[in-house]
Design a protein around this nucleic acid. Structure first.
Lengths: 264, 264
DNA sequence: CGCTGTATTGAGGCTCCTCAATCCAGGTGG
DNA sequence: CCACCTGGATTGAGGAGCCTCAATACAGCG
């Protein structure tokens, strides 16, 4: 994997989104959008201007909760957050986790009121994106609107995969799939390797994400550990038998990754 | 709820998307986008041009299946379709049903290869939208890109609600929620009333959508029927006690509907 | 050094599944 | 016009998976 040299014409820089030196000068978010739409330097600059105030949020205190109106959205710089919905019974379902480079709260902005809660799992740093700025940018830089549509579709694909898992995979398969997906995403932003990653999630959170009880999560993790597949202890996930895990989970990462920008 | 008269300036026509006579001249799809972004007549025209060949598909034969490349997407004119994913074990999970006016296959176009299957539930008529036309339209008519982003986000909200249901609602609640959501969507496009709607889905399909077995669907439907809540027989859903059903399902339809366009 | 949140393990029970039989309606061919 | 066929709906019986409750073990922290 040789690094491409920075070409004169910026369009060419992003033909292979993971190999452009120039891109690493921009935010991980810009790098992500560059995977979908080959961005010009103007578009890159517009993206950079989008980043508003840098804000810090403490762990465990909701950044956004259901029903709030006129929210901003955020681009996550460091830390993990989760998006979840509360049910009347007091239970919750975690829809997704966001890791550095992810966009969050887009739906809360597009609809005027938030339809889900956003809670930092750890201490979080994020750039605020004002709703007005976002919509202005879309009208002035239409290709960015398309790029964000693309990114949103990738997020939707993840939610769909999550739905499939909860609907049709049993607890072991579902857990395996979840860990593999998380690992693949973290690897894409340089926060993990093929053999493992740091993971700040508690078994309660895993349970709320996987649609099962924390107790059962514990039993499943033990089974996976005793089967020599994967270990999740003390905030660290170690993948011991990737192939077996992939086979168990029926994991296909194609929905997470692309070879290059789809729109030239 | 008085009907607004058709104003001279088209921008104003769509302030209340369900009350504009002019809009009914356009496709249901245009009406839906108009709920998000107040469309000018030029934008409307661009939307109309998007509709390509009208195609017919027989029931039960996949229109698109996983892995196909270079797909078109479609705007559904009549009939029902479902989007589903197959698992290695031979089971499937239905992610969503599409009804007239819905856009389908957007993700299959944005990514170059389809990540899910699309199967007509009934005989279907749909306008083909070519991938190139779609992207061209986005660049020439940027507000339409934003509008489609909005519509895609609404779809995502539905998938999220579906995920929450499968993860954290039991079979009765889930089924009730599903029927309510379907009813609300059909009502929005004039295919149902508050008291019921025609529904071509078999109990097998319901099971694949709700993440349960067809046998259990049957038992749950019986319970709901015997409880006087709702009857689903011979392709017809009759809602007998809407309030009780809403309470049971913890149903909040705000994610389906909006008061008016969000972007003026 | 107790407090608090998390992890771990056991016991018992409920939900939902699978397998299997029966019933019913619509369509088809004789 | 009826026997047959097919796909869906319905019901029963037994079992697997996951849940809840509850106890105990840990680890970090003020």
């Amino acid at each position: 994997m040789d690094r491409a040299t920075v070409a004169a014409h910026p369009r060419l820089d992003v033909c292979h989104h993971r190999s452009s030196a120039l891109l690493t000068l921009h935010s991980p978010f810009a790098r992500k959008l560059g995977a979908f739409v080959a961005l010009t330097s103007e578009e890159m600059a517009a993206l950079d201007r989008l980043h508003g105030r840098r804000k810090t949020f403490p762990a465990r205190r909701d950044m956004v909760h259901q029903g709030m109106t006129n929210q901003s959205c955020y681009i996550l710089a460091s830390g993990w957050v989760c998006s979840y919905k509360l049910l009347s019974g007091g239970t919750r379902q975690i829809v997704d986790f966001q890791i550095p480079g992810d966009f969050l709260g887009l739906r809360s902005v597009l609809f005027r009121t938030a339809d889900h809660n956003i809670e930092p799992v750890t201490k979080v740093e994020a750039s605020e994106v004002l709703a007005g700025d976002l919509l202005d940018t879309f009208s002035k830089t239409p290709r960015l609107a398309t790029a964000v549509l693309w990114a949103a579709s990738r997020d939707e694909a993840m939610v769909v995969e999550h739905l499939v898992g909860i609907g049709r995979r049993d607890a072991r398969e579902r857990t395996a799939h979840f860990l593999l997906e998380l690992g693949a995403r973290l690897k894409l932003v340089g926060l993990g390797t093929a053999s493992g990653f740091a993971c700040p999630l508690s078994q309660y959170m895993l349970g709320d994400a996987l649609g099962m009880s924390a107790v059962h999560v514990n039993r499943v993790l033990r089974e996976l550990r005793e089967g020599g597949l994967v270990t999740f202890q003390r905030g660290q996930v170690e993948i011991h038998d990737l192939d077996a895990l992939v086979a168990l989970a029926d994991f296909d990462k194609s929905y997470l990754d692309h070879d290059g920008p789809l729109l030239k």
